[in-house]
């Protein structure tokens, strides 16, 4: 464990807690893409298949349970909670996320470190996570402006993967034979996808005006 990875995990934890608290307290999910939340639930379900078979550390197991629990809770809130579901804008959240799942699965069948069930699904979860934010960013473009909490959620989500890139650089230089191109490339692509959002988020924060994304 290194400071970059720990900072990344805490930022990631903060992002899901910000979203869960927002939905739980104001009982609204306006501006949140259910498609992105469903993709994240799939990402965690396929990445943490080894949660009960390979014990790495209490921290690792605890965080996996938190990420699984929070992502499925958010999906449950947005789909089934009688009040929250009313604020879900399904007419705007129309990104065909199955068009993301199939290519990621096919790619994971081709590019992986070991062709086993668990390794292919783990690789699939990395590719899917890289593009999971797309429905949310498309929804933001459509609804034009976003409330602070959703903006913070996306900012933290992008920042966590940026921290992980520093973690991979650190591990590359400190651990011999630590070379994993698949998570590195997927993680870099993921962070780049947040690029324009970061740009507008930073400028709105600097000029202290409401975050408006260009059409």
């Amino acid at each position: 464990m290194n400071i970059f990875r720990f900072a990344g995990d805490m930022t990631h934890l903060a992002s899901v807690l910000v979203l869960l608290l927002k939905i739980h307290t104001i009982k609204s999910c306006a501006g949140v893409s259910l498609k992105t939340q469903e993709l994240y639930a799939i990402v965690f379900a396929t990445r943490y298949l080894d949660i009960f078979t390979d014990f790495i550390s209490l921290y690792n197991t605890f965080m996996k349970l938190v990420f699984l629990g929070s992502s499925f809770s958010i999906v449950w809130y947005m789909r089934s909670h009688k009040i929250v579901r009313r604020s879900y804008d399904k007419d705007q959240d129309t990104f065909r996320h199955y068009f993301l799942i199939v290519p990621c699965l096919l790619l994971a069948m081709i590019i992986n470190e070991k062709f086993t069930f668990r390794e292919v699904l783990w690789t699939f979860s990395l590719f899917l996570e890289a593009v999971a934010i797309l429905p949310q960013l498309v929804l933001l473009q459509r609804t034009r402006n976003i409330d602070n909490l959703t903006g913070q959620y996306i900012f933290l989500l992008g920042a966590y993967r940026a921290f992980y890139i520093f973690n991979w650089i650190y591990r590359y230089f400190t651990e011999p034979h630590y070379v994993h191109w698949i998570p590195w490339i997927a993680g870099l692509l993921q962070t780049l996808l947040y690029g324009d959002f970061f740009y507008y988020y930073f400028h709105s924060w600097k000029n202290n005006k409401k975050l408006q994304l260009p059409a």
Binding site: D54, I56, E113, K114
Partner: peptide, 10 residues
């Protein structure tokens, strides 16, 4: 080992 395969990360 798990660490080798990079699976020790979240």
């Amino acid at each position: 080992t798990k660490a080798h395969l990079g699976h020790d990360e979240l």
